[in-house]
Nucleic acid binder design. Sequence first.
RNA 1: GGGUCGUUAGCUCAGCCCGGUAGAGCAGGGGCCUUUUAAGCCCAGGGCCACAGGUUCGAAUCCUGUACGACCCA
Length: 502
Amino acid sequence: MELNELEQQRFEKMSRLQEAGHSPYPHRSHRSHTVQAALADFEAAEKTATEAPVVTVAGRIISIRVMGKVAFAHIEDGSGKLQLFLRQNELGEEALALFKKVFDLGDFAEAHGVLMRTRTGEISLQAHTVTMLAKAITPLPIPKEYEGHDGQLTRYSAFSDVEERFRQRYADLAVNAEVREIFRTRSRMISALRTWLDEHEYLEVETPVLQPIYGGAAARPFTTYHNQLKQQLYLRISFELYLKRLLVGMYERVYEIGRDFRNEGVSYKHNPEFTQLELYCAYTDLQGMMETTEQMIAYTAQHVLGTYEIPFKGQLINLTPPWRRIKLRDIILTGTGIDYTTFPDAESLRTVMRQRGYDAASTASWGHLVDNLLSEVEPSLIQPTFVYDYPIEISPLAKQKSDDPTHVERFELFIGGMETGNAFTELNDPFEQEKRFVNMGTEQADEDDESHPMDEDYLRAMKYGMPPNGGFGMGIDRLAMLLTDKHSIREVLLYPHLRAKE
RNA sequence: GGGUCGUUAGCUCAGCCCGGUAGAGCAGGGGCCUUUUAAGCCCAGGGCCACAGGUUCGAAUCCUGUACGACCCA
């Protein structure tokens, strides 16, 4: 192991510790209190004027101030931080000297002693013993913090290099408490979604990640190979087709929270693998899905943040149901002045788009162009909005409107200027579904990128009879962005994908 | 894929325009200091200036390319 100068120094301190008869990596801690519990116990004792508690706390040393025969340090655990007051009178000369010589910022240590208040009023542990729990060899970039009179926390040279934070997420988490909080919020969010779904009789299921035929969305897959089966497999791009098969199998409400993989570009709202929630509910339709969606998300916000009003990018998003509902045609017409329904083919739509100054690739299909127009208005959809009635061309798994066969019962959900969800009255007519697959197939021949292959087994399932149902899918990462006011998907992924270095 | 910007000490940054061989604060090392909290004071360290070429007597600095990243556009 190659050590730089600073690491070499710490390595030598480790040896000194061993020479003094202590292990730098002992087997166990004897913690009696978390920091939070210690603070609570002390305050309780103060109130009742009983003896100050004797505790053992453990954690990472995040500050040290040595002043001769006394030293102060802060120790941080998962619950908070506590000042240690290390006095020669209490510790003994040898122990204090050892602390000063071999303990560094970043080390895990444990301290045993009695709680007290210092002259400035800070609750502190007057340490009788200090023990190393795990020596840190590489110095953590622990910032200095300063709390102003107004309680405002100022931080000096915090570890902020975006690339290094993501490449060494452990260091990022170790020194940036607010980053730890993001993933707590994310976890509470997923837990709240599960609670809501469980309470509404949804059954959580798991379907294959490795699929012989990918489907359910328009995206390029990752490809892999099973050696023994001698079979090409794909990492799933959605769960849709497997979940809907379960409705054929007589489950009425199912959901899955899991990872999808799309072999496409990386951006502030795209990562090659991302977490998706999909749910399907028999005997309901698009209208029911709208209600389900707004109830579920509003519940989640309430449970995670305690409010329906969430700050995002300097604006306040109000998630109180019911949410705005607007037709795709109308939102595009208002935003761009183009009524796509009057330009029913790619050629005429492309022409009018170019006239109005919008980009319209010559290779793009009509559906693709409509999608481009929607992208133009997407950033303005800050408050939660269901955009509904989509052209059939870009919705091969949704059921047609009974009064307009050119459009399907589908909505996309926009919040904070991002597409966060997608739902249909699901197509359950096997003959119509087969036609759609075939049509998609011929379109791919033209476009060649986002293929949507025929899934014979899915059609077979549907031929057994699939109840009418509504389905909804949502990007969990995007919802996490909204609830944490983070503007890049990487901030809400513990290990976002980065290009390999060297 | 295109454009713009960035990469200098463990961390956060200055230096680059206008070329002369590397700076600060924090962290670390050696001292002083028994209630500090960005503790303070004294002393001495620490760098393949992302990488590879080019221009030049001389390059962190100017030019070209590569890698990685950020932002914008497609």
